[in-house]
Amino acid sequence: MNIGEIAKRSGVSRSTVSYALSGKRPVSEETRRRIQAVIDELGYRPNAVAKALKEGRTHTIGLVIPPAGRRLTDMQLGFVASVVDAAARADLDVLLSPSGGEHDRSFERVVGSRRVDGVVVMEIRLEDDRVTRLRETGLPFVGIGRTARPEEMSWVDIDYETLISRCVHHLADLGHRRIALVNRSAELVAAGYGPGHRAQAGFARAVAERGLESVQTCCADDAQSGMSCVERLLAEHPGLTAVATINEAAVPGMYHALAQAGLSVPRDFSIAGVAAQDWAENLHPPLTAADVPADELGAQAVEMLIQLIADPATPHRHVLVAPPISLRGTTAPARSHDPLH
């Protein structure tokens, strides 16, 4: 049964029925009652769009992802999948919108046209124009990540500072005395990418606490860059015996560079990091890492967003997780030939 049949039986136009359902324009009480009587008689149920219009809702949330030209890492894909799954369980659609550079028009269309009821934003910078814009619009939003002013928004995040610090302490406990941090790309870190800066802080603190020799470097999110990065580290720092990293996509290249140099993981060289669990487990050897619970965090972000949509006055909520390091196949005691060991 459709709106046309209801209009015919009610003796009104289709647009009048539509206005009665959506509340977009006033309809006389007598006409509204007549339409409602036909609806009740026919057992008509307004479709989802009509229901959403009546409630002033789209039943769609936006998910703002990194630029479309960049390949998403397994961890990022995990967050996307978890947000989509959690939204589906809540009977919500998800509109994906890339952001950054030429994609900013897409972001502006999403937030400016009210095509969505709320937004989940990924890859938050310490100073993030997207967060500023969302706060200006009043559109409910939740970050996967947080700015330098975490109190200004609701967010879920991984405690990269604590996790990289734990990685360093684990490697130091195994006798490693020269350790490198392999971060995300120089462009991301220069742009104020939160995890990159927090990893640097945790690394610097831990190596100072343990009195270690250290080096920090940035690396693009791909295997080729990981290979080049480790080749350079080995050439410039011959006493290096371990790496801590938040760059999971570069790890296979690191493995390759070490093998090319005749170094066995973990007998000659150890690697520990922060990564998606499936990714870490399926590497050869499996990566010793703090496993990021992307499915859990994505679901929590959607739950927070639904609460904000229902009640915009809901106080900001913050979820910071620091999962334990899962010991796998990439860390072992430092070789005794290390002169500082």
Rank of each mutant, 00 (worst) to 15 (best):
K8Q: 14
M254K: 01
R34P: 02
R335H: 09
L53I: 07
F107V: 05
A90N: 11
V64L: 10
G143K: 01
P238R: 09
E231T: 01
G143N: 05
P26K: 13
F107W: 06
W155Y: 14
V156N: 02
R34Q: 12
H337Q: 13
V17L: 09
M304Y: 04
D157T: 12
V131G: 00
P150K: 07
G100F: 04
A276S: 06
A204R: 10
H176Y: 07
T241D: 14
G138M: 09
Q300E: 12
E152Y: 07
M122I: 10
A50Y: 03
E161S: 15
W155P: 00
D74A: 09
T162V: 07
V110F: 05
D85T: 10
R135A: 15
D93A: 09
I325S: 05
P195C: 14
R125F: 05
K54T: 12
V80F: 02
S10A: 15
A86G: 04
P315R: 08
S165Q: 11
F79S: 05
R32C: 04
T137E: 14
R57G: 03
I325A: 05
Y19R: 08
L308V: 02
P26N: 09
Y19D: 13
Y160K: 02
D278T: 14
R210I: 06
S97A: 13
Q277Y: 11
L126A: 07
R178H: 14
P286E: 11
L283G: 00
F203V: 01
V168N: 02
G138S: 13
T147V: 07
S214A: 15
G298C: 05
H176M: 11
I325G: 06
S228V: 15
Y44A: 10
Q216I: 05
C229N: 13
L283W: 09
L233N: 03
M304N: 01
E123L: 06
I61D: 00
C167A: 15
V64D: 03
L174P: 03
L21F: 09
Y193G: 01
G78E: 01
A68F: 10
V265N: 00
D291E: 08
A332G: 09
V94A: 02
V265A: 06
G202I: 03
A50S: 12
T147E: 08
P195G: 09
I158W: 01
I39E: 01
G145M: 03
I6H: 00
V38D: 11
D222P: 02
L320Y: 03
P293D: 14
E136Y: 07
G138Q: 06
L287N: 03
S185I: 12
Y44Q: 07
E41A: 11
V142I: 10
R130F: 12
V17K: 00
V142Y: 01
G196E: 02
V265E: 02
E213L: 15
N183L: 08
A199W: 03
V215I: 15
I124C: 04
K24G: 04
V116R: 00
K8F: 08
E187Q: 14
V265P: 00
R115M: 09
S165R: 03
